[in-house]
């Protein structure tokens, strides 16, 4: 157990270190990163002063070590456009993105799971095939299109929901659905294959032979036993949803990290973009780490075999 844990932890650390290095190199793709940091109105004297004060006139190796040291202290720098610490800016937006991701995950789970169950149990019916088509269709729908369509129908024509912005629970509904539709298909597919897998097992057949009704079988055995893969896929979905939030937040003017990313790129506020990218990578790496560890706790074969 502990060897597996240490190995996996080591891999995660290497990945985090690598991501930081990658971002460092991306910064320098155009040569001098000072130009990425200054507002468009800055004069040449400002630029030179900033370059010196940030140590960007020093050798690359020194810059790299300084950069890593800052990151290790969780110091993501200061936005020169807004004159506020990046950590502070990110923290002010984070709750919105968490709300949205949570809402989307809920939508995906609450719709995806029953759909997957239905597709597994009634797989011989034509209607089920149609359902599968709808699910696949939802997955291919670009969020910025489905979002706009929802705004048109529910926001503008029917006036049921506020078309965009934030402030109340009703503002959260449409963005959550738009974002959740993407993951819903994944959940439905995983649930379907996992339930089909479980249905072919001996204990189900013997339960049927004992005369257990279908409803009881599904409620007591099938769902519980096929939940493990469904839950473990959630770890991967969370990082997908965080990425998808960039577009959904822009469509619905939802003031989370995604909108912040786009605004920062437009305002040429590179430090903030860099902070969000690093945060996104850290979240992805740690969520995967946690998922792998949880998985190995649930299924001891993974620990023994070494690879998930």
């Amino acid at each position: 157990m502990s060897v597996f844990l240490l190995q996996r932890l080591g891999q995660a650390l290497v990945a985090i270190f690598g991501v930081m290095t990658l971002v460092f190199f991306i910064q320098r793709l155009t040569g001098d990163p000072t130009y990425l940091l200054v507002p468009e109105t800055a004069t040449q004297a400002d630029i030179d002063a900033l370059r010196r004060s940030l140590g960007l006139d020093q050798p690359l190796v020194v810059q790299y070590v300084n950069y890593l040291w800052d990151m290790l202290r969780l110091d993501f720098g200061t936005s020169y456009v807004q004159n506020v610490a990046v950590t502070e800016i990110i923290m002010s937006r984070l709750p919105y993105t968490l709300q949205l991701t949570g809402g989307a995950l809920l939508v995906a789970f609450v719709i995806g799971l029953p759909v997957g169950l239905a597709m597994a149990i009634w797989r011989r019916y034509r209607a089920t095939n149609l359902l599968m088509g709808v699910v696949l269709g939802a997955q291919s729908m670009p969020t910025f299109w489905s979002g706009i369509l929802m705004i048109m129908v529910f926001g503008v024509w029917l006036r049921w929901l506020p078309p965009s912005g934030s402030g109340s629970f009703s503002h959260l509904i449409m963005p959550s659905i738009a974002l959740g539709l993407l993951s819903m298909a994944t959940y439905a597919r995983i649930a379907r294959s996992s339930i089909l897998d479980e249905m072919s097992k001996d204990y189900i057949r013997s339960a049927r032979a004992r005369g257990v009704t279908t409803g009881r079988l599904v409620g007591k055995h099938l769902i519980r036993n096929s939940l493990i893969p469904v839950i473990s896929i959630s770890a991967l979905e969370i990082s997908q949803l965080l990425a998808g939030a960039v577009i959904v937040e822009t469509v619905f003017a939802w003031p989370g990290l995604g909108q912040l990313t786009v605004q920062s790129v437009q305002a040429r506020d590179f430090v903030v973009v860099q902070g969000i990218v690093l945060l996104g990578a850290f979240v992805t790496i740690s969520v995967n780490l946690v998922a792998d560890i949880l998985y190995s706790v649930v299924d001891p074969r993974i620990r023994k075999g070494g690879r998930a």
Binding site: I26, Q27, L29, L36, V273, Q274, T284
Partner: peptide, 21 residues
């Protein structure tokens, strides 16, 4: 290792940071 590193940054964010540079 490079593959692991690239795949651990959400693709759209990686694309956005590169475009912004």
């Amino acid at each position: 290792r490079l593959v692991d590193i690239f795949l651990s940054i959400p693709a759209i964010l990686l694309a956005i940071i590169m475009v912004s540079v």
